[in-house]
Design a protein around this nucleic acid. Structure first.
Length: 311
DNA sequence: CCCCAGGCTTTTC
DNA sequence: GAAAAGCATGGG
């Protein structure tokens, strides 16, 4: 068992980070109360926060994805992104009341998740509640993911790796449908998308290229059935490290109207109004970090205004 | 039986 | 082209 202590310049809340809805591996990411366990890119990992600026990392391997544990975690939790640079300097002056609410969530980080895992997870997230989304991803992982175990403090914890593109590509439609809230159309879309990834028709490594303009990236993702602008932006933001991607769903639409007095947000959300809102928010937030800031706003909106504490 | 839940797709004007 | 309806499913 390898151990590293990670210290951060700014406060970091693993709890808010994991419960903010950017990852749906609720059941796979064991919350033991005072520590967490999960699999990050094939490596079982224990996270043990010791203070707001410090947490311990344990893993069965010294390296994750070729880089040492400390460097990988630093990258994974986007500790290179300074919270003080996410919102424009004038933001606190323009929106003083909102700024006060937001301050509680500055310890929330976006994590750089696996592209394929992010793609499939968010394909499960349309027109359905957060609870059922987590259930679907959890079932996918338990039925198709490789089982791993890790011991910590004398206890053995069973974890499941997210299934590979090849595994889902060859999944039986009927069997997979049980994992997608009995939605056969969604199951079929997941199989087709997985096949494209497995066959190399979708190259997620290529899509990671920062030089790719966001609209172009979004359009390429939207070529897949079941992926529209919103899901594409989620994949870009959480799975491809594109902090400029700003996913707009019903909640975001609501806070754009309430907090920023957007009249566009009052219209029904169509591809047209989606793009209009997308360009509107880039005059309020830094375009390059609009999605990062947006996720903090999203989490704040759901907890402070919608009072959604159990998700 | 109603409406809603982190949308997407097809039809219609 | 862009707004409106349709879709698909479980839960409150």
């Amino acid at each position: 068992m390898y151990h590293q202590k990670i210290k951060t310049e700014n406060k970091i809340s693993i709890r808010d980070t994991l419960y903010s809805g950017q990852t749906f591996l609720w059941n796979n990411f064991y919350d033991h109360g005072n520590y967490y366990s999960t699999i990050i890119n094939s490596s079982p990992v224990i996270l043990n926060p010791v203070s707001e600026h410090e947490f311990d990392i344990y893993s069965d391997s010294e390296f994750v994805n070729g880089s040492n544990l400390h460097d990988f975690i630093h990258h994974y939790f986007t500790l290179d992104v300074d919270i003080n640079t996410i919102f424009p300097a004038c933001f606190s002056r323009l929106y003083p009341e909102l700024w006060q609410l937001l301050a509680k969530y500055f310890s929330l980080k976006i994590i750089r998740q696996d592209p394929f895992e992010t793609m499939i997870s968010f394909m499960c997230a349309q027109g359905i509640g957060m609870h059922l989304i987590r259930k679907q991803v959890s079932m996918l992982v338990q039925n198709y993911g490789e089982k791993r175990s890790v011991s910590f403090l004398g206890r053995e914890v069973i974890l499941h790796q997210f299934p590979s593109p090849e595994r889902l590509a060859s999944a039986d439609l009927i069997a997979l449908t049980r994992c997608t809230n009995n939605n056969r159309l969604r199951a079929n879309n997941i199989i087709k998308a997985s096949q494209r990834v497995a066959e190399g028709k979708i190259n997620l490594d290529y899509l990671c290229d920062r030089q790719l303009p966001l609209p172009e990236l979004r359009n390429m993702l939207c070529l897949n059935d079941g992926i529209g602008y919103k899901i594409a932006d989620c994949i870009a933001l959480f799975g491809l490290g594109r902090f400029d991607a700003f996913p707009i769903d019903t909640h975001v639409q609501q806070y754009l109207g309430k907090w920023f007095n957007s009249t566009t947000a009052l219209r029904s959300l169509s591809p047209r109004s989606y793009l209009a809102l997308d360009s509107e928010i880039r005059t309020i937030l830094y375009p390059d970090l609009a999605g990062y800031a947006g996720h903090i706003l999203f989490h704040c909106w759901r907890k402070e205004i919608k009072k959604l504490h159990s998700f």
